[in-house]
């Protein structure tokens, strides 16, 4: 019995870590830049495919790929905001309209990125094996690579949290997320902060992609599923709240694990039931303001 509990809990934490990681970036992009980035999952896919390509072609350790993939993906996100979303902000002066249009633009981006990846890598699943052995503790058996992914997800989340709370840039970001107008009055360069936030969101997605490629077979159509999970987690935790995303991610992972233990085919149904129930009780998410 105890063994089962341990299995279910650790299994849930692992999925939760992944969920948390993929949703923090989205939360950031929505919280500060007001962009519900539907192409979020495509950045995850890019991170995963870069890693697969680097690992299979050049034998580079996937962990090293975190460092290799991070800068270009950040720059891609940064540049996208600087070119497209900045212009969009200039032409739409009304915030309600901006959010709708920003979502449309990210839909367009999703199509473009997906198609490029499809042309380059085709649609068959790809994969490699990394740390494919099991680790035993307390009698329960787990995949080593999944535990590594959990550890990494927690580290990245913690580092990110510290960055937001301690660094100057982090404080500027938080100020901007609370009130962009006021932050601008205090001399924060809003456009630059937003572009950085969008870049960081893309970067976190990219890192999540690197980690996911260690434990899953990947394909060019994988992005949308992760986008949906990320949106769910972000809403569950409270929009724009980074700790909320963490809690939301882990909560969803644990619930999924429990349900999957009882009846695997009901896992997704359980997600939606829980989210719907939670929204009815707390309409702004767990940590929503």
């Amino acid at each position: 019995m105890l063994l089962t509990v341990l299995n279910v809990v650790v299994g849930g934490l692992i999925m939760g870590g992944i969920y948390a990681l993929i949703s923090m970036g989205l939360s950031m992009q929505y919280g500060v830049a007001r962009i519900l980035n539907v192409s979020h999952g495509e950045f995850i896919m890019l991170g995963a495919f870069f890693t697969w390509a680097l690992h299979t072609a050049a034998g580079i350790n996937p962990l090293l790929c975190v460092a290799i993939c991070a800068p270009p993906i950040f720059l891609l996100g940064f540049a996208l905001h600087r070119t497209i979303y900045k212009r969009l902000r200039d032409v739409t002066r009304v915030s309600g309209l901006f959010e709708g249009n920003a979502m449309l633009v990210s839909f367009g981006l999703m199509f473009v990125i997906k198609n490029i990846a499809l042309m380059r890598w085709g649609s068959s699943p790809k994969g490699y094996s990394f740390m494919a052995y099991s680790v035993e503790f307390g009698g329960a058996v787990f995949s080593a690579n999944r535990l590594l992914v959990l550890a990494f997800a927690v580290c990245v989340s913690a580092a990110f949290y510290v960055f937001l709370n301690r660094s100057r840039l982090g404080k500027a970001i938080r100020a901007a997320s609370q009130d962009a107008q006021a932050a601008a009055l205090f001399g924060i360069k809003i456009n630059r902060v937003m572009a950085i936030c969008f870049g960081i969101g893309a970067l976190l997605a990219g890192i999540a992609g690197v980690l996911l490629s260690m434990i899953y077979q990947i394909n060019t159509a994988m992005g949308m599923n992760y986008t949906i999970i990320a949106i769910i987690v972000v809403v569950l935790g409270g929009l724009g709240s980074i700790p909320g995303s963490l809690i939301g991610g882990f909560a969803l992972g644990l619930i999924g694990s429990v349900v999957a233990y009882i009846e695997p085919s009901l896992q997704l149904v359980a997600y939606y039931v829980i989210i719907m129930a939670l929204l009815l009780v707390r309409p702004k998410g767990i940590l929503g303001r």
Binding site: L88, L97, V105, F111, V112
Partner: peptide, 21 residues
């Protein structure tokens, strides 16, 4: 058929940027 998503996506982005309402 093999390029429609790119073109569709690009037109969508351009349309929003140049006619936001």
């Amino acid at each position: 058929p093999s390029l429609y998503m790119i073109i569709f996506g690009a037109i969508m982005i351009a349309a929003i940027l140049f006619m936001p309402s």
